Computed example of a mutant assay.
Amino acid sequence: MVTPREWEFAGRNGAVAARSWPRPDPRYLAVLVHGYGEHLGRYDHVVRALADHGASVCGLDHVGHGRSAGERVLITDFEDVVADLHTLVTDARADAPGLPVVLIGHSMGGMIAARYAQLHRDELTALVLSGPVLGRWDALQMLLGLEEIPEIPIDPTTLSRDPAVGEAYAADPLVWHGPFKRPTLEALDRCIRTINEHGSLGDLPTLWVHGEDDQLVPPAGTRTGIEAIRGSDLTERIYPQARHEVFNETNSAEVLGDVTAFVDRVLRVPAR
């Protein structure tokens, strides 16, 4: 895998750290959208799989996350986060005009990717949603109903059946290990409602992957959101016993294989 190119650009709410892994002869452009409290650096193995599959890959750290500016995990409007992502995609498409674009979002990043697809459908060839925060997230409503947000961080054991994943997460200094912040929760709620209201993604090929035993973002709640946005080309994969981070699960090779097979199927379909 090539050495990544790293840079910053002016986002809606401060400097945004971005990274890309270009290829001289890419088949498509894969854009990674990470989840809450984490950062793009946790996706190196996903980048390798996509690069081996022929993709140029890029992504960013959301405002308040990873190496980007801003108060940690504070997001007051996800439309601004989507706008930052659009800046990245626009720049990447300018560097490689004509390439098919596959947007891949995990958890909160899946929510961001879904909203991006609603706003910029014509720029995308395919969408992949991993454990996305969509539809109904009961934990969010529970937290918003409390007078004070408890000092309870995400439990690393809920991420994967592989203990090493949780251990690395707990030791990662770029991961947020504190509680949720109310303005971020309120912004999440608004974004979920906006996605539900704006409806179908039309004929955009979409792959939804989710762990059956996801305790952080249970698939039953997400399914209501998938039904709100699904169009004419939805593929679903629910992995038995898998937890929240299916790209980091004990069957991650299977999951990534399903992603690349989905991309192959989409790229073989003639452009409409």
Rank of each mutant, 00 (worst) to 15 (best):
T158Q: 13
S68R: 05
G257T: 04
R265I: 02
L60N: 11
Q118K: 06
A69F: 04
L185E: 08
I104L: 14
R23W: 02
H120E: 07
V101C: 07
Q118W: 05
M111P: 11
G225F: 01
A228Y: 11
E38T: 04
G105T: 10
V47M: 09
P100S: 03
D61W: 03
I149Q: 07
G110E: 11
E79T: 14
H65G: 03
W7K: 02
V259A: 11
G231M: 00
M111L: 12
P219K: 11
S200M: 03
M108S: 07
D52W: 07
Y239E: 14
M111N: 12
G199C: 10
R230S: 04
I104T: 08
Y169E: 15
A171W: 02
D122I: 05
R23P: 05
P205Q: 12
L256G: 01
R23N: 01
V81A: 13
V47C: 11
L134K: 12
L204S: 06
V2N: 14
T3L: 04
L216S: 14
D84C: 01
D52K: 12
D80K: 15
N13F: 02
H198Q: 15
G225T: 08
G35I: 05
V31G: 07
A170C: 06
R19C: 13
L146P: 03
F247M: 15
V217M: 05
G11C: 11
E123Y: 03
L60P: 00
A117P: 03
D203G: 04
L267F: 03
